[in-house]
Simulated scan of single mutants.
Amino acid sequence: MGESKERKKLIFQADEGENPQFGQYDSFDEYFAEKYIFSDGEPLDSREKSKISTSYSQKKNIISKSLVEEWNIEDYRMYDLKDQLSIVMEFIKRANGL
């Protein structure tokens, strides 16, 4: 038998605080996959980042449903994005049969 690989612990580094810096056309799953490192500080290779990205991508439906459940229009009343966010939330609800 070959050598068994030791499973390393991952750490998520949210270095931007509450305002993530990603562009309009950036993929959230790829963006967040880039935020992981091993607990020893070693960066992940592209294959490992791809696995994380794929995992996030497969969970988009669950993430969307959770967002809709927690979303409250009162949180956005002061912004003129209210109507646009309302439309987006309605599309998410319809797409998920809610």
Rank of each mutant, 00 (worst) to 15 (best):
M1I: 12
E3D: 13
E3A: 10
E3I: 14
E3R: 13
S4Q: 14
S4H: 14
S4R: 15
K5C: 08
K5Q: 11
R7A: 14
R7I: 13
R7S: 11
K8M: 12
K9W: 06
K9F: 01
L10W: 05
L10C: 02
L10R: 05
I11E: 04
I11K: 05
I11D: 02
I11S: 01
F12S: 04
F12H: 06
F12C: 05
Q13N: 12
A14S: 13
A14R: 12
D15N: 11
E16N: 12
G17D: 00
G17W: 03
E18C: 08
N19S: 14
N19A: 08
N19C: 09
N19E: 14
P20N: 06
Q21I: 10
Q21T: 10
F22H: 04
F22P: 01
G23K: 02
G23F: 03
G23L: 08
G23V: 04
Y25H: 10
F28T: 14
D29H: 11
E30K: 11
E30T: 12
Y31D: 03
Y31P: 00
F32N: 03
F32Y: 14
F32G: 02
F32M: 07
A33E: 01
E34S: 11
E34A: 05
E34D: 15
E34R: 10
K35N: 06
K35L: 14
K35P: 01
K35D: 05
Y36P: 00
Y36Q: 02
I37V: 11
I37Y: 08
F38R: 00
S39Q: 06
G41L: 01
E42M: 05
E42I: 02
E42D: 09
E42W: 04
P43V: 06
P43S: 04
L44A: 02
L44N: 01
L44D: 02
D45Q: 03
S46P: 07
S46V: 05
R47G: 13
K51T: 13
I52L: 06
I52P: 00
I52E: 02
S53L: 00
S53C: 00
S53I: 02
T54E: 03
T54A: 12
T54Q: 06
S55I: 04
S55T: 09
S55H: 11
S57D: 13
S57V: 04
Q58W: 09
Q58A: 15
I62A: 13
I63P: 02
I63N: 05
I63V: 15
S64E: 15
S64F: 15
K65P: 00
S66C: 12
L67P: 00
V68R: 00
V68E: 00
E69Y: 02
E69C: 04
E69A: 07
E70D: 12
E70Y: 07
W71E: 00
W71K: 00
W71S: 00
I73K: 07
E74T: 10
E74S: 06
E74L: 14
E74D: 08
D75E: 06
Y76D: 02
R77A: 05
M78T: 12
Y79D: 06
Y79T: 14
D80R: 15
D80G: 10
D80C: 07
L81N: 08
K82M: 07
D83S: 13
Q84E: 15
L85N: 07
I87G: 09
I87K: 13
I87Q: 12
V88Y: 01
M89C: 10
M89V: 06
E90P: 05
E90R: 12
F91R: 11
F91C: 09
K93L: 04
N96S: 08
N96T: 09
G97M: 06
G97Q: 08
G97D: 09
L98G: 07
